[in-house]
């Protein structure tokens, strides 16, 4: 028997009650979605971002894939051309926001404490600190975690999943929820490929199995290889958001 919770070996899959014990109470229908509150707030964020013609990306990955390093390089290379703002999500420390702020781009650290993901409420308040009228592209770096952030819409245009070649190429199969939710997968640290046994083609095939529509780019924010294709995609996203707002306003 497990000494922590008392479950026995036969209960590896716990029995869930789906029948009531005898109560004399009154039954009240509720029919409410558990993520309804987050989804409502995410909808508010999405409307705000549309009004401000703001392209918004939600960067997700496991810890250590290079999300912050990709951002640093991207901001340094494009900040004269695109006005960025960055929300950094981590359980603790302001290290990442400090790294971003060093590039001269407005950044805010959100510490989730014990929380494993950012939610729409945190993002809604987080962006209050930025001048959104003077921003083209908001990058939200989520908590390094391939599980929970998949379920929480923040109001972003797209999720971008980062996977580095020092991880397993089967990550998309192990965490399908996340790779299904992502529009784009960045395969990072490709400068290390000569030293590793990571099979890029296999990795891409796995990602397309869980999400046939996913766009995949290979890059290294260290050597700079492949970054230009990522920048082109960002430019298109920013232009697309403004065009959508203009056509609506016309």
């Amino acid at each position: 028997m497990c000494i922590d919770c008392g479950c026995g070996p036969a209960e590896a899959s716990h029995h869930h009650h789906d029948h009531k014990h005898d109560h004399d109470g009154k039954t009240v229908k509720i029919e409410e979605d558990l993520l309804a509150k987050n989804n409502r707030l995410a909808g508010n964020n999405r409307q705000l971002f549309a009004d401000k013609e703001l392209f918004v990306l939600n960067l997700v990955s496991s810890p250590g894939s290079g999300k912050t390093s990709i951002l640093e390089r991207t901001l340094s290379d494009l900040k004269e051309e695109i006005c960025f703002a960055v929300l950094e999500g981590d359980q603790q420390t302001a290290n990442d926001a400090d790294r971003i702020a060093a590039t001269g781009v407005p950044a805010l650290q959100i510490n989730t404490g014990t929380g494993c993901h950012l939610d729409a409420h945190m993002v809604g308040h987080g962006v209050e600190t930025f001048d959104l009228n003077a921003t083209d592209l908001l990058m939200i770096e989520n908590v390094g975690n391939l599980v929970c952030p998949a379920s929480f819409d923040l109001g972003e245009d797209f999720k971008v999943a980062v996977l580095s070649v020092t991880e397993g190429e089967d990550k998309p199969l192990k965490y399908p929820q996340m790779f299904r939710a992502a529009k784009m997968m960045l395969i990072n640290k490709i400068d290390l490929l000569p030293h590793l046994r990571f099979d890029v083609e296999k990795c891409k095939a796995f990602a397309r199995q869980v999400n046939p529509e996913i766009t995949i780019l290979e890059l290294s924010c260290h050597s700079g290889e492949g970054m230009e294709a990522w920048y082109t995609w960002l430019r298109q996203g920013v232009a697309g958001k403004k065009a959508a707002a203009d056509s609506k306003g016309a």
Partner: peptide
Amino acid sequence: FNCSTCGSYALERLQGEELRVIEMEI
């Protein structure tokens, strides 16, 4: 990830993503 009949990966989810409070007894 793929269709058990034809093998295609283009699957549409119809049911199974529910996360709801249905009712309570008070």
